[in-house]
Simulated scan of single mutants.
Amino acid sequence: MIVPRKYEQGSPVKIRLDRDVLAEAVAWTARSLPTRPSVPILAGLLVKAADGQVVMSSFDYETSAQITVKADVIEDGVALVSGRLLADIARSLPGKPVDVTADASRMELVCGSARFTLQTLPVEDYPALPAMPEATGTVASDDFAKAVAQVVVAAGRDELLPVFTGVRMEIEDDTLSLLATDRYRMALKEIPWNPSSAHTAGAALVPARVLGESAKSMTSGELVTLSLAGSGTGDGLIGFEGDGAAGVREITTRLLDGEFPKVRHLMSVQATLTVRANTAEVIAAVKRVGLVAERNTSLRMIIGDQAITLEAATGDQAQAVEALEAVVTDETGNGLAMTAAGFNPHYLSDALSALDAPYVHFAFTAPGKPCLLTALNELDGEPLTDYRHVIMLMRLPA
């Protein structure tokens, strides 16, 4: 595979490739471009043609992305152009082969009767992309994409608290664990994977946004390769490589600095009360009842005899109530330890959707304490513990 490096100057490029391949490759690479680059050159997308393939790259000093696609390369070379403008143009082209030529001053795209000319940027000013670290192991692409999607939903979005915007990846022999929290909810997913060497162990705090985009975009092939280098935080680097639409995709990103909170113990609550219900029915009810939930107020779950009732209100303006069948079990044998629980309706909806199972198992301990959600394939089956989602319950008014 061609690995972009820093070039002294641009050189002529002449290639032909399919319109859909060009549009997909440019759009994916440009997606990683910074919205407000610290220096103008970082708005550029690097195009390198050689040996019957084209590599398109972007970099913002934190995250790099590159895709390798097959093309008719008439003349080897390298050029740098505005990535977002190139993406807009490629998306608008008609469904015909695209001829791309570039020199030190401009790039020209010809597709049928459409012709575009762009000013090129100085290649010599573009920073060198980081090298992909040595492969640490591989994981099934579909399993990885699903696991990441289940976990990133619990990651924080406040950039002022960067440690909570990451997903902690833990490697222990043939098990890969993903863990995220925004302090009010936590998600843990464990999946099997294939380490490159025996007795592999390590951890990394990866930006959730980059991890989510990487996992979603590399599902065309069977495997995703993970490459981890560095100390695991701060100055470390992690890379992902896999097949996506149009070609082979690679992403590297710097790891987040800071110590991830120790929240694993919250994934093993000793339940005093459990509730089992149909997941789809609960999701639908939460969405309906949540429509009238006032901002920053809870959706109340009333736990009764083999039924739950969801309630929400916006003062005296609107109220909603819906009852659902459920299997309610007192785990203490001393009578129901609690009869109501307060959920953030958005957190509850996210957790239920992430379960991806026909039934849900709620494990309660006490009012205002963490509630553990796990999946059930059968209403009377054992909880599936490979994915665990914890929601901190909201305190209900007396």
Rank of each mutant, 00 (worst) to 15 (best):
I2F: 10
I2H: 00
P4F: 09
R5Q: 03
E8R: 00
Q9H: 00
R19Q: 14
A25E: 06
V26H: 05
P34W: 09
I41S: 06
L42A: 07
L42E: 01
G44D: 05
L45Q: 01
L46C: 06
G52H: 14
G52T: 13
V55L: 04
V55G: 00
S57M: 06
E62N: 13
E62P: 07
A65F: 14
I67A: 04
K70F: 04
A71Y: 11
D76I: 03
V81R: 03
G83T: 02
L85M: 14
I89K: 01
S92R: 05
L93P: 09
P97D: 08
P97G: 08
P97L: 13
V98E: 06
D99M: 05
D99L: 05
V100C: 09
G112Q: 02
S113W: 00
F116H: 08
T120V: 12
P127R: 00
L129D: 05
A131C: 03
M132S: 01
P133W: 03
V139W: 01
S141E: 01
S141M: 06
D143Q: 06
V148R: 03
V153A: 05
A155P: 04
G156T: 01
D158H: 09
E159A: 14
E170A: 14
E170F: 13
T175V: 15
T175F: 14
L178E: 08
P195N: 01
A201L: 10
L205A: 01
V206N: 03
G212H: 03
G212Y: 04
S214R: 02
S214H: 05
M218V: 10
T219D: 08
S220Y: 13
L226D: 02
L226G: 00
L226K: 02
A229C: 04
G230T: 05
D235C: 11
L237Q: 04
I238F: 03
E241C: 08
D243F: 12
G244F: 11
A245G: 09
T252G: 02
T253W: 09
L255T: 10
K262N: 10
K262S: 11
R264L: 13
M267T: 14
S268M: 09
A271V: 12
L273F: 11
A280R: 12
E281Q: 14
V286T: 09
K287L: 13
E294V: 09
N296L: 09
T297Y: 04
L299T: 10
R300V: 07
A312Y: 07
Q317I: 15
Q317F: 15
A320V: 15
A320T: 14
N334A: 10
N334T: 07
N334P: 05
N334Q: 11
T339I: 12
H346Y: 13
Y347F: 15
A357G: 06
A357K: 00
V360F: 13
K369T: 12
P370K: 07
D380P: 09
L384A: 14
T385L: 15
D386R: 14
R388S: 03
M392Q: 01
